[in-house]
Structures are given as C-alpha cells and as structure tokens.
Amino acid sequence: MSTKSSNQGQHYPAKGSEPAATSATMGNHHYEELSFYHGAAKLALNAALSPLDNAKVLMQIGFEPLPPRPTKTLFGRPALGLPNVFTYMSYMRKRDGFWGLYRGCTARMACQVVSGVTFHQVTSRITFQRCSHRRKTGCDGKREEDLNEEELRKLFMMATLRDLGGRLACIIITQPLFVVKTRTVAQFVGQEVEHSGVLASLRAIYNENGVLGYFSGLMPRLLGDLLSALLVASLTYVVNNYVVEDREFKAYTASFMAYIGSALTYPFHVVAACSAVSGSGLAAGSPPFMPLYSSWLDCWSDLKAGNQLKRGGSIFFRYYTGPQVLLGGRVVPVGNFPGSPDGLSRRL
C-alpha cells in the first residue's frame, strides 16, 4: 500500500517520448544549421555579383560613358547598340581598378542581412487567429491539394498578407542602406570620395539632405516590391488553381510569374535609383547628368517622357533610345550622346 501511495501523483514520460523530444531538438538544430549555411551562401553569391549590380545601377541612373555603335536589332532593323554589361564592367575596372567593381559591397551585404532578419522576425509574429481559422475551415493536417476552394483562398490571403507585411518592414528599415549603396556606386561618375564607407556615407547623406535623405526613393521602391510580390502571388494562385492541372508544371509557375512581375514593376526600381541620387550633391545626381527632381513623380514623368523607364532592364542586348536620325541606312545619334561630360544630361 505504501508503495502504491508513494507513486501517486508522479508523472512518468510515455514510452518513446524522450527519444521523440531528442529527435525534435536535433531536427530543429539541423534546420537552423541548414538555414545558416543557406544564408551564408546567398550572402557570398550577392557579394560575388556586386560588379553586375553596380553596372546595372549606373545604367539605371543614366550613366553611359561609352558611345553607341551602329548595329541591328534581332529583327534586322538598324539601331544604335550600347555596350553589354561585360564591356561596361571592363570600363569600370580600367577606370577604378579591380576593387572599384565592388563599390558599395559592404552596404549591399548589410542590407541583405538586415532584410533577412527583419523579414523572419516580422512574418513569424504575424498571426490571423489560427484557432478560429482552423475551426472554420477544418484544414488541420490536410495537404494543400486536399483543401477545398474556400480553404485555399483563405490560406492564400493569409500567406500573401504575411509576406507583404514582412516586405514592408524590410524595405522601410533597409532604405537608408539602399541609399548608401546607390550613392556609393553613383560616386563612380564624378569620382567623389564622400561615400567611402557605410558610416561616412550616412554622415554625408545627413549633411546634404538631413534625415529625409535616408528615405530618398522610398515610395517607388516600396511600390515596386509590394506590387511585384502581390502580382506574383495572385497570378501563381490563379494559374495553379484554375488553369494548370499538372503538378510538375505547378512547381515552375511561381518562378515564371516572378519574372513577369519583375518586368512589369521594373520602372519603379529605375525611379527609386534616380530618386536616391538626385539632389545628393554628387555629379551623378546633378545637372548635366541628372536634373534635380522635386519628387519621385517628377522623376517618373521626366523618364517616361524620354522613354527611359526601362533603362538597365537588359544587360546583354542594349539599345540607345535617345535622339537619333537615319542617314544612309545607318542610325546616327543627334548631338553628343548622354553620359559623356559633354552629353545632354540624362537622355539615355
């Protein structure tokens, strides 16, 4: 009796519970380790591709130091071709040295790290009354393909809103680093040295534009990223649920839609880069290379009028779209081509 009473109120782990807990702990540790290596690999890749990104930024802000040459389009029409990204990078290296190709690399990596941490922290804290949702949809333990249309719609809305919330926070928090990176790269035009590091750049931005300078180009960047994410999520949902039935093909839908979303919202990123540089005190953000825009809408209107909202969108097949005439079957630019010291401001 005494033995029985002494055992009352004691709770022993169920058979196999300790190994299960240990397995779960090991699984979480393994997942965190894989996430770390995945993040480190993305960071290394981002750093390695800095020269490509720098060349693209310079194209976006309208800096074209190499003159266009007569060529033909894929359809055989006469045109003026601009150098591809590799020729552009070769020019950058000759002028700035090898390490000059990696201008702004520190700010770029810092932006990626802060963005990744912010996105994880924000999305992990966004909830939508899970218990209420599960009682209404009854989708506990179901695979996605087993959900009905209403459950899929609710799941899509929750995932999309969570993603947009995370992106919104990331863009706002990393905008100062985006401005630092863009202006550091833009220094290549006038060979200034004010933005020689992240802290030096932050001081230079404050001295030139005040606190608002840290958020130059925020609105077009915000609209571009959020509209692209919303467009990709919506198109993927519609195609996978109402158009495509092949499960293997569905795996590639999101990637294809991401390309479409990126192409459609690309003008916002061009305007964001120009807005981040305009009025910065750098040669790249001042006449004759770039006008002093009063707002990002002013920048959009000016670039649209000159057919420049897509510049930098192609890094291999690039064509001059400024003033030009056709003489003797050859296209010739009118006046000095933009991008040179004697060029016509931003018209490229």
Score class of each variant (00 low, 15 high):
T137A: 11
R77P: 00
G100M: 00
V243F: 09
V198Q: 03
L212G: 10
S340Q: 09
D140P: 04
Y91R: 05
Y320S: 07
I61F: 00
G329D: 02
R103E: 00
C299N: 09
T321K: 11
S314G: 08
P65A: 03
S2E: 15
G339E: 03
K56F: 03
L226N: 04
H269F: 13
L58V: 01
F316D: 09
Y12W: 10
A14T: 15
S255R: 07
A233N: 07
E33K: 14
R108P: 00
P68N: 06
R247K: 15
L327M: 12
L218Q: 03
Y237H: 13
T236A: 11
P78C: 05
V271D: 04
V185T: 05
A273C: 10
G165H: 04
A55C: 10
V243Y: 13
G39N: 10
R330N: 11
Y320H: 10
A48C: 09
P333M: 12
N336M: 06
H195W: 00
F178C: 11
P338I: 08
M109P: 02
P291D: 06
D342A: 13
E151D: 13
D146S: 11
F36R: 15
T184I: 01
A204D: 02
P288V: 00
S262W: 10
Y319T: 05
S228R: 08
G62W: 00
L80Y: 02
G261H: 07
S17A: 13
V232G: 01
S17G: 03
Q112N: 11
N7W: 12
G213Q: 04
K72V: 08
E151I: 07
R77I: 04
L45R: 11
G261P: 04
N84H: 13
D96S: 04
G224R: 01
V331R: 14
R77M: 08
C131Q: 15
A110P: 04
F98Y: 06
F128Y: 13
F256G: 15
Y259W: 06
V57E: 01
E18P: 01
S216A: 11
V332Q: 07
G116E: 02
W296G: 02
D146W: 09
A169F: 02
S132H: 13
S17I: 04
K72P: 05
F316H: 09
G335E: 08
W99H: 02
P291W: 02
V244P: 00
L223I: 13
K181P: 01
W300G: 10
F128Q: 09
T87W: 02
R247E: 15
Q175T: 12
M1I: 08
P51E: 01
P291Q: 04
Y293T: 05
L344R: 12
K304D: 03
V85C: 07
R330A: 14
L155Y: 07
R125L: 06
I205K: 06
R162S: 14
G76K: 08
H133F: 07
L292R: 09
Y12K: 15
N148L: 12
E145Q: 15
L326V: 12
Q191Y: 01
F36P: 05
A20H: 02
K142S: 12
A233H: 10
A273W: 00
C105A: 11
Y319D: 07
Q175A: 08
P338T: 11
E32F: 14
M109Q: 12
A200D: 09
L34Y: 13
N84D: 14
